[in-house]
Design a protein around this nucleic acid. Sequence first.
DNA 1: TGCTAATATTAGCATAGGCTAATATAAAAC
DNA 2: GTTTTATATTAGCCTATGCTAATATTAGCA
Lengths: 132, 132
Amino acid sequence: MLILATAKMDTHQSNRTDIQSDLEGASCCTPVSSPLTERELAVDVRALSAIGNDTRYEALRIVAAAENDVCVCELEPALGVTQGAISQALSRLYGAGLVTRRKDGRWRYYSATPRAERLLDVLDETREVDDE
Amino acid sequence: MLILATAKMDTHQSNRTDIQSDLEGASCCTPVSSPLTERELAVDVRALSAIGNDTRYEALRIVAAAENDVCVCELEPALGVTQGAISQALSRLYGAGLVTRRKDGRWRYYSATPRAERLLDVLDETREVDDE
DNA sequence: TGCTAATATTAGCATAGGCTAATATAAAAC
DNA sequence: GTTTTATATTAGCCTATGCTAATATTAGCA
C-alpha cells in the first residue's frame, strides 16, 4: 500500500492515481512502497537536509570534534560567514536533533547528539574520495 | 570554499585547548577549524544533500529495502512524481555514491551502496520521532 | 542604571533546487 | 526499416535556501 503524499503544500506534487495493479505484466514493474512512515521520513529528511550544507556540516563537524562543547563565537572564524548565519545554522541543527544546547551566562554551548555522532562516524568509515 | 581558522585571537584570552574541567571564568572564544579536508567535506555534503530530500530519500529507502535491485519504473507509483523527476533523483543519488546502477536491456537496475546502507541503518537506530 | 558582549531574529536579495512537460536517446519488438 | 518501451535530458517556472546587514534580545559589568 502506498502512503505519503497527503496534504503537502507542494504545488508541484501531482496527485496521480496509480493504475499499477493490473498493468500488463511480464516486465519488471512491480510497484513498491516506502518502508517508513511519513513521520519517520520527515524526521530523517529534516536531519539530513540540515547536515547537507557546507556551513552546517562544517559547524557540526567542529562541534562534534571538540572535547567540550563549543560556543557560537568559536565557530565564526572557521566558517567564514557572519555571526547571524552561524546562529541560523546552529538553530537548524538543533531543530534537526543533531546538537544540544545549553546556556551559560551570555554564552550558548553546543554539542553533538548521539545521532549526529553516529552519522559522522559512518561518513568517516565509508567515505571514498575520488581524485577526479 | 573553506576558510580555515587563521589565528584570529584575542577579543578574549583563553587557553583551553584540551582541558575540560573549567570553562566558566573568562571567555569561550578559541577559534577552531574543521577536522576534514575540503574535498572530504564536499564528498560528504554531496551525499547528505542528495539524501536530504523527500523524493530522493524515499527512493533510496525503497531501493535499499528491495531484495534485488530495483528499476526506475518500480519507483514511479510509490513516489508520486513524474518519470523524469525519478530519473533525476536516481542520477543524483548515483552521483553522490549512494546507489549503483546496472543496465539490462532497456532497464536500469539500481541498488544501494554500502555507504547508503550504513547511513540508513544509523538513521533507523537513532531516530526519535517526536509527537510534536 | 546604563553599557557592552554574545547570540537571536528579521527583511531582503540572489541563487539553487525540484518539479512538470516536452523531447531525446536507446534497445527490443514488429 | 518503424514502433514501442524504458530511461535520460532539457527548458522553464516556482519555491526554497542561505547569505548579509540591520536590528532585537539577553546577560553580565561599570
